[in-house]
């Protein structure tokens, strides 16, 4: 397959038995423009009306910067925590057959379906100093609700299914034979996991991480309940945007949005590049 691509040089259209290339591409471009590009262009357009100096003034404002830091910092931590635990959940779901497995499998999707506000309120009730878990942690001096830690917990909740659902199918496909091969060559369990299984899952894990991260950055509903929303401490960027809107400061809101957009895009691009590299490195595609 690769040889065809190389021999023919770079081509937009690969020879295919399925017709409709023009129609499909045209539709895709129109659709993406309507759904994604136009709204984002609106953000940029609005921001542009501020001028460079105006934009930087808002973007580098102390409250904006700390909100952005909170947003991206907690999202990164939450996505990073989701990776090992999400992989573990996927492992249990694919490798073991136990009563209630299907129910557990369905439960993983709940954070997708639940209104995020409901999740936020439930988590707040649990982790508030007078809640079940918060009450246990309070004597130890650990405050969860109304701190960045609370935000992290909400974002873990939101992001978990992304990791599980991207890793699970790849794990199911992972051949048992290569594990058996490793065992016949003398590898113990830990060596098999570290040298054979995990590298094979790497691209899927990165995808799951990126999705969980992207989702967490944009999360609003669940976070505002548990975060306490204290400016400079536990205020997230999406909330700041809403606050600016309520002040009828549309330019200020779009400026924060544009800043988020830039950082998000840069991060996702970086992850995609790492992923492309790892796919090549780990022998997927050619």
């Amino acid at each position: 397959m690769t040889s065809i691509g190389l021999a023919g040089g770079w081509r937009i259209k690969q020879p295919s038995v399925i017709p409709g290339f023009g129609l499909a591409l045209g539709f895709t471009l129109t659709y993406l423009s309507l759904i994604i590009l136009l709204p984002l262009a609106g953000v940029v357009w609005r921001t542009a009306s501020l001028g460079w100096s105006g934009f930087w003034a808002i973007a580098l404002d102390e409250r904006t910067v700390s909100a952005l830091k909170t947003s991206f910092g907690t999202s990164l931590v939450a996505a990073a925590i989701n990776v090992p635990f999400g992989v573990l959940v996927a492992w249990v779901l694919t490798r073991y057959r136990f009563p209630g497995r299907r129910i557990l499998d369905a439960i993983v999707d709940l954070p997708f379906a639940l209104p995020t506000a409901v999740a936020g309120i439930a988590l707040t009730a649990l982790y508030a100093p007078n809640g079940w878990i918060g009450g246990l942690l309070a004597p130890l001096g650990i405050k969860v609700a109304y701190t960045p830690l609370g935000i992290v917990i909400a974002l873990i909740f939101i992001g978990l299914p992304f990791v599980v659902r991207t890793v699970q199918p790849v794990m199911e496909e992972l051949s048992r034979e290569s594990e058996e091969a490793a065992a016949t060559l003398g590898a113990n369990r830990w060596q098999t996991v570290r040298r054979v299984i995990l590298p094979g899952l790497m691209p899927a894990i990165l995808t799951g991480f990126a999705l969980a991260l992207a989702r967490a950055v944009g999360e609003y509903g669940s976070v505002i309940f548990i975060a306490g929303n204290i400016p400079y401490v536990s205020e997230i960027a999406p909330l700041l945007i809403v606050i600016r809107l309520q002040e009828f400061n549309y330019a200020g809101a779009t400026a924060v949005a544009a800043a988020m957009l830039i950082v998000s895009f840069a991060m996702l691009l970086a992850i995609n590049l790492i992923q492309a590299w790892s796919r090549r490195r780990y022998g997927y595609g050619g």
């Binding site: 034979e177 091969a181 016949t184 003398g186 590898a187 040298r195 094979g200 780990y282």
Partner: peptide, 25 residues
Amino acid sequence: GFVFQHYALFRHMSVLENIAFGLRI
């Protein structure tokens, strides 16, 4: 030594790394 019908090579490792695996671990 076990050889599988569908090779069961470690696809993220080069030929060299595959062959050396049993010794390196």
